[in-house]
Amino acid sequence: MLFLVLIVPVSAQQLETTSAERIRCASTTSTENSGFFDYILPVFEKKTGIRVDVIAVGTGAAIEIGKRGDADVVFVHAKEQELKAVKEGFFVYRRDVMYNDFVIVGPDNDPAHIKNVQSVSKAFKHIAENSSFFVSRGDKSGTHTKELTIWKIAGIKPRGYTWYLEVGQGMSKTQRIANEKRAYTLTDRGTWLTLKDKDNLEMMIVFEGDPVLFNQYGVMIVNPEKHPHVKYREARKFVDWLVSGEGQKAISSFKDKHGNQLFIPNAYR
């Protein structure tokens, strides 16, 4: 086994492309799946020569990867969790970058009648009272965190009910499962707009607009005092660019196939 460990790095070294500056960014599936990074990172690389390698996982996993020092930068959407991790000393230099919002999507006929309720917590209550299927991410992602917050506001503990399906999958798969089960689910507008037609989802947005559904994306750097190998200088350049006028402009110019803007920059409100 020792032999393997020694020989593998040597033999695989040739596989690795030589690039002077590259940083690693742990981020979420919503940013990757929508094509956001494919659009925005080349702009940054062209300007600075710094290549950003993206590892797309759920927000919970991305923060964990950062805490362990396996990334330089974390770009996620669960502000409270982020601030907590900064306070604990795992990250530094956190900045708001952009936002979009969450929406409830569900079957066209809206069996729980939530189309015209006043608040998202009321909508969740209706779903529970009606025992309509609800698909939960169940994976500690940013979307899952938001969903749990709403259940808490509504005063409902959904776990264990037969109508509450925790699937532990990414957003796109969760939407597909909701579609097949004729269920409701909470999703971010970006993923919904990107996949609604591609996946032939027979669903619609049934609830939107509650301020609770605000979805803030933030970026933060892994604390170099905890992990000395972190490429702080390059990571700092990346964060500074994202929140700069130029970076913010690039974010707002990112559109999906139908011309919808998926993320709204708000670094300096």
């Binding site: 460990v5 790095p9 362990r68 020092g69 396996d70």
Partner: peptide
């Protein structure tokens, strides 16, 4: 291979080498 793991100092995670080790 994680930076917080026993062989983290080698910086192998998220590289083709790490994939070779796992598949091996």
């Amino acid at each position: 291979l994680s930076r917080s793991g026993p062989l983290g100092f080698m910086g192998l995670l998220y590289s083709p080498s790490a994939m070779v080790i796992a598949q091996c």
